[in-house]
Structure formats: C-alpha cells, structure tokens
C-alpha cells in the first residue's frame, strides 16, 4: 500500500502531531512564563519560567476541595458502573421472558442524549433531595448502556459448560460470579473503569446544573468559574488548566489500550 516514501509520511505525521500538540504547549508555556503575559509579541519559549502560578491557584481557590469532590464522584461512578453494569450484563446473558424488551429498552435509552433530559432530571434530583451532593452528581452516570453490552459480550464469551459444571457441583451463584466470571472478564472491567472515570471526570453540564454550593464544586466547574472569581490572574488560570488536565491525561496514557477498546466497542454497537 505504501506509495509515498517513509520520510514523507513521517513528515506529514510530524506536522499533524505538532498541530495537535501546540494548544497544549501554548497553555503550558503560559502557565510557566515569568514575563508579562500580555506583552506583544508573545514569547515562544517561556522566559524565566517559574511555578508560582501553580502556588497562586492552590491558595486562591480551594483546589484540594475540588479535587476531592471530583475524585469522590469519580469513585462512586466507577464503582457503580462496574457493579451495576456487570449485574445487568450478567442478567442479560440468561434467558427470561421480557429479555428482548429489556434489550430494546436499553438500546432506545442509548438514543436519548443526556442533554435532552436535564430539566426533569434536575427536578427529579431536587425531589430526591440530592442537589448539591456527590451522589446527586454521580447517580445519572452510575450505569452505562454501552458498558452493559461490553459486559454481556464478555460474559457470553465464557463457555457455558464451565458455569454449568460449577453449578452442578453446587457452587453458589455469587461464587460463580466472583471466582469465574470476574477473573475471566478483566478486560471488560478495565474498559468500564476507564470509560466511567473519564466520563465522570470530564462531566460538566450536570454538576453545573445541580451544584450551587461552592464547597461541592468539582474541578471542571471550578475551572469554568475561575475567571469570574479571580480577575488579574491570567497565568494562574492556565496553571489551573494544566493542573486539571494532568490527572485525566495521566490516566488516559496509563490505560490507553482499554480506553480505545472501550470506545470502539461502544461505537461499533448498534
């Protein structure tokens, strides 16, 4: 298939990658720069780089509090996802009346973007008394249809004979799940963990709607509201931006394979 010399492909990709990386670099540079941010022309390399903007962020907003909120919500979402999706996925591998309708229901729910449900979802959350709470932020994300199907596919791939043999031996259901199903569907679990984490970590619209309390803000909310809180601290804003980006990117880079596998399997599902 190669018609072009290799160096040409490398050159093309290098240009594309540079274009993709420049925005990251520019913000990183701004967050480190020691010169006046608003002088023209802007310096390409940071002059007298320092880390003090990061210190400013740490003290001008309750960064740690936001981080904890984000982490708590992510943990609830990840645990909820893995447990609930695995349960639902397992149920869907069994035969029962109404299975077809349940699957249809799930597939049609997939067609409802979360964004079109925000108003009643807000009202429902208010009725449940979950406004301004971690659980309220996490609950809508606690089960994901794509991941239910990922689990179902993974459980379906486990040979029936194995489970039947265990069942005949009188192994209880919960033990079958923990000793056979879970170890054999590690990749589904990993996929679900990383997808759920990224979704919850980046989630913005929902916390924006239900969080009024300053103490309950998550990182994306804090980032979006930072400008209005602190004027005069442009450098700190971009330092904050980097501080928010790093955890997400780090986890993406660590679990890249599972993340991409999850996304493509989700995308291929009809």
């Amino acid at each position: 298939m190669t018609r072009y010399p290799k160096w040409a492909i490398h050159l093309g990709l290098a240009i594309i990658c540079t274009l993709m990386l420049i925005p990251f670099y520019w913000v990183l540079k701004t967050s480190l720069t020691g010169e006046n941010i608003f002088s023209y022309p802007p310096a390409i390399l940071p002059e007298n780089p320092h880390l003090f903007y990061y210190v400013d962020v740490w003290y001008s907003i309750p960064f740690f509090r936001y981080l904890v909120n984000s982490v708590v919500v992510s943990i609830i979402v990840v645990v909820g996802n893995v447990v609930l999706n695995a349960m639902a996925g397992y149920a869907l591998t069994r035969d029962f009346t109404g299975k077809g309708s349940v699957i249809m229901l799930f597939l049609s729910c997939m067609m409802i973007p979360f964004q079109v449900t925000i108003i009643p979802a807000y009202l429902i959350t208010k009725e449940l008394g979950l406004l301004n709470s971690h659980l309220g932020m996490a609950l809508p994300l606690c089960s994901t249809i794509v991941c239910i199907f990922v689990f179902k596919a993974s459980f379906d791939a486990i040979p029936k004979s194995l489970i039947d043999a265990a069942r005949i031996d009188g192994v209880p259901d919960w033990m079958i799940i923990f000793r056979i199903m879970v170890p054999l569907s590690q990749s589904a679990i990993a996929t679900n963990i990383i997808l759920a984490f990224i979704w919850s970590w980046n989630n913005f619209l929902w916390p924006l709607i239900i969080i009024r309390d300053n103490d309950m803000q998550t990182l994306p909310l804090g980032l979006a509201r930072f400008l209005t809180v602190v004027e005069d601290t442009t450098g700190a804003l971009y330092a904050f931006c980097i501080m928010v980006l790093v955890p997400g990117l780090m986890i993406f880079l660590l679990a890249q394979k599972q993340f991409i596998a999850g996304l493509t399997s989700g995308a291929a599902k009809g």
């Binding site: 993709m20 925005p23 979006a224 804003l237 971009y238 997400g248």
Partner: peptide, 15 residues
C-alpha cells in the same frame, strides 16, 4: 492525535 479527545472539554475551551 488521540490525546485531545479524552481531555476535559472545559479545559479545551479555555485553551
């Protein structure tokens, strides 16, 4: 090339 996708959209906006 893929790295910009999992990034928080709020941060993308600010960048």
């Amino acid at each position: 090339v893929f790295m910009s996708y999992p990034v928080m959209t709020v941060a993308v906006g600010i960048i």
